[in-house]
Computed example of a mutant assay.
Amino acid sequence: MVLTAAAIAGGGFACALCGRVYRRRNALAAHRRTHEGATTCDVCGAHISTVHNLRQHLRMVHRLPTEEAHWHQTHVCDACGRKYKSRDALVAHRKRHEGRTTCHLCGTTTSNVQNLRSHLELVHHLPRAEVRRVTGFRGGWR
């Protein structure tokens, strides 16, 4: 997260893409979703401030039933068509299609990379260094 001099002086958080400043980090996080397209109405193209407000917009303006409005703005896997409510969940799912959650030793496919790491440690008794190498580990460890 990039803070501008004005944001730092005012104690705020600035969007690195458009410069808009927010007082709270979670408000900036919500704003960032507008740049990701998560709050753009795919019926009329309107940019809505939050996912909640987008769902209200779909129900009130486009007269979609509540259930349809809830799932209308989703992230869809282009490989299998499975729908996810968040971009992060879709990214985690896509790793399955890339083979990044399949055990190279026994062929077991896990739901996510963290579960693959646990599988390699607990079932195959691989040392952590080897697990990190095999899974392309780049983050913190539990």
Rank of each mutant, 00 (worst) to 15 (best):
Y84D: 10
N115M: 12
S118C: 12
C106P: 06
L64W: 11
L90R: 01
E36A: 13
E36W: 06
E67I: 04
A9M: 14
Q73M: 11
N26R: 11
H125Q: 08
R117F: 03
A6Y: 13
A46D: 13
C77G: 04
R23M: 04
V51L: 12
R59P: 00
G81S: 05
E67L: 08
R23K: 15
G12C: 04
G19V: 01
R20G: 02
R132I: 06
L116I: 07
A7V: 01
F13A: 04
S118Q: 13
G12A: 15
E68C: 09
Y22E: 00
Y84M: 09
Q73Y: 03
R23D: 04
K95L: 10
T39M: 05
C106T: 02
W141L: 14
H93W: 07
S111I: 08
C103H: 00
E68G: 01
R133T: 14
H57I: 12
H31R: 11
E68W: 08
F137M: 04
C106N: 00
E98N: 02
H72D: 10
L90N: 02
H35P: 00
G45E: 08
V91I: 13
L120C: 05
V43G: 14
A29W: 08
T109N: 00
S111D: 12
V21L: 08
G136C: 01
G139P: 01
H47C: 09
G107Y: 03
R132L: 05
L64M: 10
V123E: 08
L116F: 05
G99K: 01
M60D: 11
V113T: 08
T110E: 09
W141V: 11
V113L: 03
G10M: 07
E36Q: 10
G12M: 06
C80N: 07
I48Q: 03
D88R: 11
S86T: 15
K85D: 14
G45P: 05
V61P: 08
G10D: 05
